[in-house]
Design a protein around this nucleic acid. Structure first.
Ligand SMILES: [Mn+2]
Ligand SMILES: [Mn+2]
Ligand SMILES: [Zn+2]
Ligand SMILES: [Zn+2]
Lengths: 166, 166
DNA sequence: GGTGATCTTGAAAATGAAATTCAAATTCAG
DNA sequence: CTGAATTTGAATTTCATTTTCAAGATCACC
């Protein structure tokens, strides 16, 4: 599940991790929950990657830092992160819920290869505007939208081309 | 799961049912499968509604015509209909796969109320064009896209407003 | 119109991601 | 410190989807 980087946004810095942790802690206090080492470890691990991770994939990364952290805690923490805006769910239509970190990230959309699962991120102001326009037109208070393009990437087309010749 | 009709496309006519059945029969022959009464009944029932049906919902409608038709057959027939372009899957992000009939229907997108599940259909040439543009830019051979807007409809906002006053 | 190889059917079972349960461990306000 | 409240994670449950399989239906060929 590779991901091509098409922008120049830097990897997350230590200061950003602290700031994101602050956002989580504030959210926890607000909803009467407690700060724990597990939640911090999961957030830190999550921020360190730019991939679109399933709960299982994140759990595998988290276990490298603390093998005792369970799948359930990762699952629940991802929901918490989504609640406070640090994570957002991305559905690539493969039946698995994926999350990406949304902290200091420009809003974007995805084009997904249906052969190899790799994805390209792209930006479109038009799509953002469309949400507003359509919402206004039909009197919806819009909260979000999903836009994905599906197709076959160049690499996979080449591979398939070769396979056809065999 | 109501759906507001925002265009004037007519309900399906008997001739259209026959034509769609022809498409299915042709597809069945092409892939070496057999024509059956169950498949015809399921297609007919499916064409009669403009709603976005889950397998279970369609099964319930189908059983009114032939109570002996099982869930599995509806499930498998929907896949067949999707294969020959008569149906398309539409994911409203509620964990259930929904299908809508695609025969003689203008391509459109959906805005979904996250409170009551109702949906509005809208049309956008911009979105169609974007698939082409982005595909070309990143050398993908695009096949399809999904675009949904989520929000709260006017009715639900009113209801919630009242609830707040109580 | 047979005939039989092939496909279909549908109840039941399997699958698997997501969600919940619960008892032991941890947090943190006072 | 203390203890009420929350968290944790293994285990279990849930539930839509998918697969299995034996009995039944279809249809290409005669
Ligand atoms: Mn992304
Ligand atoms: Mn529709
Ligand atoms: Zn690819
Ligand atoms: Zn509503």
């Amino acid at each position: 599940m590779l991901q091509k980087r098409i922008d120049d946004q830097p990897s997350i810095s230590p200061e950003m991790v602290r700031e994101a942790q602050g956002i989580l802690h504030q959210h926890l206090k607000k909803v009467g929950l407690k700060q724990t080492a597990q939640r911090d470890t999961i957030l830190r691990t999550f921020l360190e990657t730019r991939e679109h991770l399933s709960t299982d994939e994140l759990h595998r990364l988290v276990k490298k830092k603390d093998p005792k952290i369970g799948y359930t805690t990762v699952y629940r923490t991802l929901k918490l992160l989504a609640e406070c805006g640090l994570a957002s769910e991305v559905a690539f239509h493969d039946g698995i819920a994926r999350y990406e970190h949304q902290y200091n990230r420009r809003s974007h959309h995805h084009m997904v290869c249906t052969d190899c699962g790799s994805s390209v991120e792209f930006f479109s102001n038009e799509v953002e505007r469309l949400e507003q326009d359509i919402g206004r037109k039909y009197h919806y208070l819009t909260t979000r939208h999903t836009f994905q393009i599906y197709g076959v990437c160049e690499d996979c087309r080449k591979k398939n081309g070769v396979r056809r010749l065999v």
